[in-house]
Design a protein around this nucleic acid. Structure first.
Length: 588
RNA sequence: GCCGACUUAGCUCAGCUGGCAGAGCAACUGACUUGUAAUCAGUAGGUCAUCGGUUCGAUUCCGAUAGUCGGCUCCA
């Protein structure tokens, strides 16, 4: 129907738009019962949704693609047809085109109503288009999927066909190859190959088991978080995994979140829930003693384990799970302290992202919507506007680039979401930083201000390192499994050349282990080439070769997974080299 | 949860239209004693996801359940 805003003059965009029309033409030629509904251009391609209850199969895609190629060959001209709104309304009503009618009615009054026609196929459409179908050079239909009409799950389920089009066969081939390459760094594939995590049907969907390599990564990340948070004045707390129902009424979570909570377990007439978030517990810790304005800000941190009942179809490897450990903390502060605290949190995000070398991310200010007040969002319009302004101003003051998106806030306040993209292009919120102006009051939290009055603190929820699950899922893809030294589950592997070197190999392993490194030794009766190959495939940063040649001088052969053979070093020199490399891990 | 597809050995995958299930790698055993990406030989391993149905006979056809995948919805 329309090109993406701002791309109307892009020739590839126009061509994809035309390809969507050709797709709809091909489908209606082959399946006269299928009703075209809407078909926009998207990043890297296009789709078209059809109302066709029997559904399309993969085989149908081949047929449809063949028909599209036929239409392209016919070299039909794209023609613009202008029509009055009334005529269009009448036409859709007469033809029973209810979907098109609905689209037409959503076009603002005063805008031109235009159609585009090629051959026999006519579609309500804003344009622009290619001039002839032959200008659509290389097409490929990629997949079929169900999709709700207008993206609303209460509406009918339509059949969506995804496809793409490029200016040349080579461009298309390149794109398809790129997709294949992306699949190779998919964390689900690499996570299995690198023995980081696994799922077991008997444990349950969305409940990951961390293998020793994953466990090592979690330890490294927690060490990073704890060090950073200690320097930033946080205090570590610990809270239980289950909690009485009543607290979730106090917090207001039950009415909003019950659907995504595991159902309550009842014992001696009392209901307990698995905790879906840590905030209420931290609020209780804040409330555990009298607070003065002199104590604020109070920063409570915990790698809390939470459980959320995500719908089965929503699970996705490590990126979307049902049990998760969150890099959580809550900062209780005064209104005056808000900006500094909020910015400090943003700076912490940025320093982490710098450490990981994450370039492609987006800070997104998620605000409320008027319509959601009292339903999705607490019904305090003035406070929403005020806190959203506070966040906006803080970001501007800190010169932090962001985009703003309406109707994405938490129920208790606006938030900054940090958006990232997975290897296969799916978008996720990696980290989040939220302002809570509602829940502290519900918990009766207060501190004595300088006038000896009770005042409700603001609360900042923050999780810059996301959850272990989502962060590690993302990092696997980001590094394609080749983790930096500080994060690599096995940092070095000692490879013995022959059996008579085992003792020395074990001694080298011990020296490095004693120095704090994660080191394994491969003492098998195998050729060095095999041991190297296996260590390379596991993306171990350093391979340490212990053989007869270096025995006399007590050296080890050092091989780096990327730089190859680095020659021989004495162990103390090797340790110095590793220490230098680990300094990257020191973030200010 | 919804639409569609898939599920064969520890892993990666063959197995045309129903007729006793295959490979490579891994594992185990033995030989080889190894210097920068795969030494050789042998052995073992599967109620073909689960449960029902059709059939003389089902890994193959049909149905249900579970899990996974591509999307939609939702989300850290």
């Amino acid at each position: 129907m329309v090109c993406r805003p701002g791309h109307e003059n892009d020739p590839v965009e126009k061509m994809r738009h035309s390809a969507a029309h050709i797709l709809a033409d091909a489908v209606t030629r082959l399946y006269p019962d299928a009703k075209p509904t809407i078909g926009p251009v998207i990043e890297n391609g296009f789709y078209y949704d059809f109302d066709y209850p029997p559904g399309f199969s993969e085989d149908d895609l081949e047929k449809i693609e063949a028909e599209m190629k036929k239409i392209i060959k016919e070299n039909q001209k794209f023609e613009r047809i202008d029509m009055s709104r009334d005529d269009a309304l009448k036409m859709f009503k007469e033809n029973g085109e209810t979907y098109k009618l609905e689209i037409l009615q959503s076009i603002p009054e005063g805008e031109d109503i235009t159609f585009y026609k090629h051959g026999e196929f006519v579609d309500l459409c804003k344009g622009p288009h290619a001039n002839y179908t032959k200008q659509v050079k290389a097409i490929k239909l990629l997949s079929v999927a169900g999709a709700y009409w207008r993206g609303d799950e209460n509406n009918a389920m339509l059949q969506r066909i995804y496809g793409t089009a490029f200016a040349s066969k080579e461009d298309l081939a390149n794109y398809l190859e790129q997709l294949e390459e992306a699949k190779k760094r998919d964390h689900r594939k690499l996570g299995k190959e690198l023995e980081i995590f696994t799922f077991d049907d008997e444990v349950g969907p969305g409940l990951p088991l961390w293998l020793p390599n994953g466990g090592a990564m979690i330890d490294a990340l927690e060490e990073l978080a704890k060090k950073t948070e200690r320097k930033a004045g946080y205090h570590r707390v610990r809270t239980p995994h289950i909690t009485k129902e009543t607290m979730y009424y106090t917090s207001g979570h039950l009415p909003y979140y019950e659907e995504s909570m595991y159902p309550a377990m009842e014992l001696e007439g009392i209901k307990y829930y698995l905790k879906p978030m840590n905030c209420p517990h931290h609020h209780k810790i804040f409330a555990a003693k009298a607070r003065s304005y002199r104590d604020l800000p109070v920063r409570l941190a915990e790698y809390g384990t939470c459980y959320r009942y995500e719908k089965s179809g929503e699970l996705f490897g490590l990126m979307r799970v049902r049990s998760m450990q969150m890099n959580d903390a809550h900062i209780y502060c005064t209104l005056d302290q808000f900006q500094d605290e909020f910015l400090a949190v943003c700076r912490m995000y940025q320093s982490y992202f710098k450490l990981f070398g994450i370039q492609k991310y987006q800070m997104r200010l998620s605000t409320h919507s008027k319509e959601g007040l009292g339903k999705k969002y607490v019904d305090q319009p003035e406070l929403w506007i005020k806190t959203e302004d506070m966040v906006r101003n803080a970001l501007k003051a800190g010169d932090i680039p962001f985009v703003e998106v309406e109707n994405e806030a938490a129920f208790y306040g606006p938030k900054i979401d940090v958006q990232i993209w997975s290897a296969i292009g799916r978008e996720f919120t990696l980290a989040t930083n939220q302002v809570d102006f509602a829940v502290p009051e519900r918990f009766g939290l207060s501190f004595k201000n300088s006038k000896n009055e009770d005042e409700v603190p603001l609360c900042i929820h923050r999780a810059p390192l996301s959850t272990h699950e989502r962060l590690i899922g993302f990092l696997i893809e980001h590094y394609a499994g080749a983790f930096p030294l500080w994060l690599a589950p096995v940092q070095a592997k000692v490879l013995s050349v022959s059996e008579d070197q085992h003792e020395r190999a074990l001694a080298v392993q011990k020296q490095l282990t004693d120095a704090g490194y994660r080191v394994e030794a491969d003492l098998r009766n195998e050729k060095l080439g095999l041991k190297i190959r296996e260590a390379q495939l596991m993306k171990v940063p350093y391979m340490l070769i212990v053989g007869k040649k270096d025995a006399e001088a007590n050296l080890v052969g050092v091989r780096h997974r990327k730089d190859g053979d680095l020659g021989s070093l004495a162990v103390p020199d090797l340790l110095q080299k590793l220490t230098d490399e680990m300094k990257e891990f020191d973030i200010e």
